[in-house]
Design a protein around this nucleic acid. Structure first.
Length: 196
DNA sequence: AAACCCACCAACCGCGATACA
DNA sequence: GTGTATCGCGGTTGGTGGGTT
């Protein structure tokens, strides 16, 4: 037996969201709050699967989203956090109020990667590209050899990988020399939307 | 002006983790 | 303790718009 589909595909919309769908979703969450994504589409009168609703809300509709260009400070913070955490985009997003994991992931892949490469830094390992033995990193934060080897190999896109990052899923990063006070929490806490 | 290329980003997919019966 | 449903994450895809030839 396989995993059951997350939604009934025959009766769900796909692709770009319409204004009306956005409005419905916003209105529903304002009234009832987040949660129970599975049943939300039906309750909100949306022909979407719960996953899609959740993504749309988190990545686009949430009122506390910052949007707009990333600042230099945000750039540096992302690089720093990535050197420590690897592709743990949700954790990184947790340290950047108003930014989403998807947004940061996209930004990394389109901007920061190139920026680091142009600086001669391997975005996967945060080491100088032609200095394989060096322990110097692009950012001046402490990190261990073990982490350097374990993180960021995803960029090879060879199928053989995807592994290390995934295997470390939800495992706290080993950073004995740093206390970033990492915790899993929504990127930005505001007063609850729903009056309950 | 048209065709092509490229960068960006919203959205989807698959899977592991977690909750719950 | 086990099986199933649901959530949440990271990787990937595809549409679109802007730039270039």
């Amino acid at each position: 037996m396989g995993r059951s589909p997350c939604c009934e595909r025959a009766h769900t919309n796909k692709g770009a969201w319409t204004k009306e769908e956005d409005d419905r979703l916003i209105a529903y969450i304002r009234a009832h709050g987040e949660g129970c994504w599975r049943s939300l589409p039906k309750a909100a009168g949306l022909l979407r699967c719960g996953k899609s609703c959740r993504l749309r809300w988190i990545n686009y509709l949430r009122p506390d989203l910052k949007r707009g260009n990333f600042t230099e400070e945000e750039d540096e913070l992302i690089i720093k956090l990535h050197s420590l955490l690897g592709n743990k985009w949700s954790l990184i997003a947790g340290k950047l109020p108003g930014r989403t994991d998807n947004e940061i992931k996209n930004y990394w892949n389109t901007h920061i990667r190139k920026k680091l490469l142009s600086m001669g830094v391997d975005p996967a390992t945060h080491r100088p590209i032609h200095d394989s033995a060096a322990t110097i990193t692009a950012v001046s934060v402490g990190r261990t050899e073990e982490k350097a080897a374990g993180f960021g190999r995803e960029q090879e896109r060879s199928g053989e990988e995807e592994t290390s990052a995934r295997r470390q899923h939800h495992r706290p990063p080993k950073c004995p020399d740093l206390n970033l006070e990492l915790c899993i929490s929504p990127p930005f806490q505001q007063a609850p939307l729903h009056p309950i």
